[in-house]
Amino acid sequence: MSLLERLNEDMKQAMRNKEKEKLTVIRMIKASLQNEAIKLGEDLNEEQELTVLSREVKQRKDSLHEFEKAGREDLVEKIRTELQYVELYMPKQLSEEEVSKIVAETIAETGATSKADMGKVMAAIMPKVKGKADGSLVNKLVQQHLS
């Protein structure tokens, strides 16, 4: 079942169950996917769908951070709920240990020895962990391994 089909089924279920917040989030995800498809002029493949979902998660995490900083507890709860719904459609996230192992393997593959090689390592790692690990975690682990 494709992501769009899954979203449509979940949207129908959310309507039946009168889950307004979930319905709103599903509609936002669908709109983002459709906008991306229009922009590219083609149907999205799984990797492109994952890119859109990752963008949605990142936007919500950034908003969450800003609202927490501003002390807006009303909006913090709303964004946390939205984030939970969006993450339902993401692939299972890798643990920090799994990401660390991938980082070590990639550093060995690229022959990186110092922080000057960080860009090369990040460029090699990100396609491997796309949608399965947070970029900031990967960045932190690469820095630790290279120092």
Rank of each mutant, 00 (worst) to 15 (best):
R27T: 01
A123G: 05
T81A: 08
M118H: 03
A37Y: 05
G131H: 02
S100I: 03
K120S: 12
L53D: 00
K58I: 14
T110K: 12
Q143D: 01
L146H: 06
K101L: 09
K140W: 02
L50C: 12
K115W: 02
M90P: 04
T106P: 09
K20C: 10
D117L: 00
G111A: 00
L33A: 13
M1P: 15
L33V: 07
E42I: 13
I125N: 08
K92P: 15
M11I: 03
V86W: 00
V129C: 03
T24V: 04
M122T: 06
L94Q: 04
S2L: 11
S95F: 01
I29K: 09
Y85R: 00
R6S: 13
K18D: 04
V52C: 14
M122R: 14
K140Y: 01
E42N: 06
K30N: 05
E5L: 15
A112L: 01
K120C: 07
E96Q: 12
V25Q: 00
N8K: 10
V103T: 11
I26G: 06
T81M: 09
K12S: 12
S147C: 04
Q13I: 07
L53G: 10
L33G: 11
R80H: 11
A31W: 07
D43G: 12
V142S: 00
L141M: 04
V103G: 10
E87V: 02
G41R: 12
E77T: 15
T81H: 12
Y85L: 00
N17L: 08
D62F: 05
G119P: 02
L141V: 13
Q59F: 15
K128C: 03
E82V: 12
M1L: 07
K92M: 07
D117N: 05
T110N: 14
Y89N: 01
K78I: 12
N8F: 06
V76G: 13
T24F: 13
I79Q: 06
E96C: 03
L44M: 14
L7D: 07
G41K: 04
E73S: 04
P127G: 02
G119Q: 08
K92G: 08
R16D: 09
I26S: 08
V25D: 00
E98K: 03
L83S: 10
R16F: 03
Q143L: 14
K61D: 01
Q143S: 09
T113E: 15
R80K: 14
L7E: 02
E46P: 07
I29P: 14
A104F: 02
A123C: 03
L4R: 15
Q93P: 08
K101Y: 05
E19N: 14
S147P: 09
A37I: 09
Q13M: 11
K69Y: 12
M15T: 10
F67M: 15
T106S: 13
V138G: 07
V138Y: 00
E105T: 15
K128Q: 11
H65R: 11
A123K: 08
D62A: 10
S136R: 14
S95A: 05
E9L: 12
E73I: 12
N139C: 04
K128V: 05
I79S: 09
E87G: 03
Q13D: 14
M15I: 06
K120A: 06
Q144E: 15
R72I: 08
A112K: 03
S54E: 06
T106L: 02
A14R: 02
I29F: 11
S32T: 06
L146M: 07
L50V: 12
T24N: 07
E9H: 13
R60C: 04
I107N: 01
E42K: 14
V138L: 05
M11P: 00
